[in-house]
Design a protein around this nucleic acid. Sequence first.
DNA 1: CAGCCTTTGAAGCGC
DNA 2: GCGCTTCAAAGGCTG
Length: 581
Amino acid sequence: MPQLNGGGGDDLGANDELISFKDEGEQEEKTSEHVSAERDLDDVKSSLVNESENNSSSSDSEAERGPHSRPDSESYERQREYFAEVLRRQQDGGLFKTPPYPGYPFLMIPDLGGSYLSNGSLSPGARTYLQMKWPLLDVPSTAALKDPGSSSLGPLSNKVPVVQHPHHMHPLTPLVTYGNEHFSPGTPPAHLSPEILDPKTGIPRTPHPAELSPYYPLSPGHVGQIHHPLGWLVPQQAQPMYSIPAGGFRHPYPALAMNASVSSLVSGRFPAHVVPHPAHGLHQTGIPHPAIVSPVIKQEPGAGRISPTAHSKSPGPVKKEEEKKLHIKKPLNAFMLYMKEMRATVVAECTLKESAAINQILGRRWHSLSREEQAKYYELARKERQLHSQLYPGWSARDNYGKRKKRKRDGKQGDCTSGDNFLCQTKKPCIPYRPPEKVCDSPSSSHGSMLDSPATPSAALASPAAPAATHSEQAQPLSLTTKPEGRAPPRFPPPSKVSAPTIKSSPASSASGSNSSQSNISPHISSTGSQTTPLLSRPIPYTSLSPSILSPPNPIHKLTLHSHHALLQSQPLSLVTKSTN
DNA sequence: CAGCCTTTGAAGCGC
DNA sequence: GCGCTTCAAAGGCTG
């Protein structure tokens, strides 16, 4: 299993906080394998990369030795250059002219414009190394690496050898939610272009996205690998929320991952260079934000589209046109992050695939989460919004309004006019969603009475981690119409009613001030009973699903089950969940 | 094949 | 300030 080694290199400076990932040699071996594929191109006998990788197992690390790892390394001056370059590149997009540190995967980009040595090998300066600050967790089959297409650097596809380890998610993994379409082949990073020359033509070209960032090479199939849902959050790992993970390549903001130190992320402070150029919405590194989606590319994922535009040097108008097409997605909220994280688990547990059903379960589980657990997601969401706003200062959620296909709201409302006005009072009709063959679907019939008890006791007891009180919260009565009967009142009483109104702007800040709000919870609990109003007499929604399934085992939940259903409580909730299978 | 379903939260808009 | 709407993810389903 992979291990985390705090502090990848003493010389990393800002990178000190990065975690060097070393898989007991396996990692480096695979990286070496990766590098070996490059040799098809430059036919290097004494591959510096390989050397560094092979030597990395020795006591001396490349990081420590720097350029002097090479026997012919001469001068102190060169060593100085080396570290200067390292530091500079760390702040400037992660490209190295010298082999990166061992333990960190990288892509070697031959710079054919550079000079060749007399022996035919590339001079050290003829390579550019794209440092991956997050180590490779796994490397794909050699077949993939030795794919002819990958032998030439240019076409390093998105399938570059990065596979996320299923059990170690990057803390930000759930943030990488902008789909795989981000890597739109277009949008050449201007400042990187000079760094990469087309291996065939020698003409400067725009690097393929995979060359720029390996953080998003995962196919959708890889994304859903099962892992401990909160593995990266659990305190015992003692990792900061935004620490570099063991497994994560898929940083939502690759550019930031490459440029901003973790501490900057955690603290919320962003180096000036992180702030993107407002004009085009791309980070300095040229790596598009994952939230940026080009509709065009989304429709035609084929790589063929890349580009005339990308390769052609015609910057001007065409480029602007493409930029106009960029779609910056909204940052994910806490629940979305949670869903991303937990979906695979729920799918595995319940053998469900339909997102609607899964989301129902996740919704219940979300409410059953402890305050602290939710707080983590709120914090993540807050940071994501923060990053998003940093990257796209001028972006507004309004920009995306109407970009989706218009929903058939008119149709729905038309239905309302036709009858069941009760259902029509809400945006979401209270029609239970029941996937046909739901293994996880619980004994809705046998335990229907469960619905009468507070759906999520913990929700009633635990105060939120302080999400910003939102309209959703304030409009909770509306939500109740789609929730189980007896659904707990809003866990997060509107600040305006409970605490300082200023909380709304900052979930995190409200989290810190949640204590004050917590004291106001019990009144809300008591009000639960009074909630048995017409609203609750509405058709029972999906929540016929057993709470034991919908909610993860939870002490509070157990307690409630005990009080309401001693029979069920007699067996562990987890068993109850399993038994449904 | 576009849109729906389903969840919560964030944000925008109109009143 | 409140209520409503839209969008964010996801993937099967539907017309």
